[in-house]
Write a protein that binds this DNA or RNA. Sequence first.
DNA 1: GTCTATACACGGATAGAC
DNA 2: GTCTATCCGTGTATAGAC
Lengths: 210, 210
Amino acid sequence: MQTTQSLSRESGGREAVEHTILNAAECVFARHGYRGASLQAIADRAGLPKANVLYYMGSKQVLYLKLLDRMMRRWNAVLDDITTQSDPREVLSDFIRTKMMLGQRYPDGSKLFAAEILAGAPFLADYLEGELRQWVESRVDVMRHWIEQGKMDSVDPRFLIFLIWSSTQHYVEYGAQVNAILGQEGLSEQDIDDVTAFLERVILKGCGVR
Amino acid sequence: MQTTQSLSRESGGREAVEHTILNAAECVFARHGYRGASLQAIADRAGLPKANVLYYMGSKQVLYLKLLDRMMRRWNAVLDDITTQSDPREVLSDFIRTKMMLGQRYPDGSKLFAAEILAGAPFLADYLEGELRQWVESRVDVMRHWIEQGKMDSVDPRFLIFLIWSSTQHYVEYGAQVNAILGQEGLSEQDIDDVTAFLERVILKGCGVR
DNA sequence: GTCTATACACGGATAGAC
DNA sequence: GTCTATCCGTGTATAGAC
């Protein structure tokens, strides 16, 4: 990877700049979607001239795809192994907590993903129909086992997954609405804990998880 | 209102044209948000030259505000009277079903609303902090009564409202993802009924509604 | 590597012919 | 009322000075 040149000096070299640009872009794409975002807005937020953004990223589309990919990798890094042997209560609790944590940790990435889906998922169609669908199917199988074993009520596992996704995502994606209604600017750690506890309690009880 | 001219001929006159434009615009704004939407795309979808859109609507912003207003009015026309006397089970069931129905009936309007919130609600801040917040507070009071009377578990009513909003909205806003995962193109009437039944069951049971 | 200047298409909006 | 032509700003992307 081109060790040729001086990547010393400055505040960390190329990688630091790329990181700055990616974060700025994530924020702008999150609010305005792919078409609504402008390179000028991204450059301004990154504190760079517009041309530098293109120099480092190649094009608007490549930049956008990099961000989608980064978000998918964050996602995959966390949402893993559920096995048939696992305790449903523990697994589902963990699922809810992890999803909530991801939203809090990467609010812009989560919103970016939401905007992409809202637009009809033009860049993510393959991911949704392939990787994600398979992920869901494997979890569905596990939950079906749980149901057969009487460990939870007979509910459609796909709907349960959608319920967990939507109810946790809401506090990121609809943050503006949540803040307006709760009358505050952003949720505290305590608020997040309260919401998480509420969701765990209601969803587990609602599905009759023992 | 200018009864002067011939608004005969053609397919219904001015109102019909306005309706066509509004629906086309709703679709484009829903997918791409305020900035990402172009008048050209709206005009194309409506089957009109770009200038006509502006002739009827005045400006992009006015058009957008008309759409937000139309969606708020649809909303208000339906989500009304819950009283302390009402049966919680019936009221919450009705709430879930109505919200689900609104999403199915006005998918573009619902997505448009979602995109506006995602963008930070620049045009809806007043509505959220005023009208909507008051609406929520009044329902919260009712639910607190129910809790005091032992009609349901002691859960935070605000979180319950968010849960109903998010879980129903998901099937509209994340329609692309839901379709990809369920492996079909759009949900059937039966699917919607199934989802609604699932949500009613899980949420009511989860909150211990008697 | 970084920035200014610029090419060229598309954005919203308006003028004016019909 | 309807459409074409056009204004002018902004959009992405590139050329080329430093």
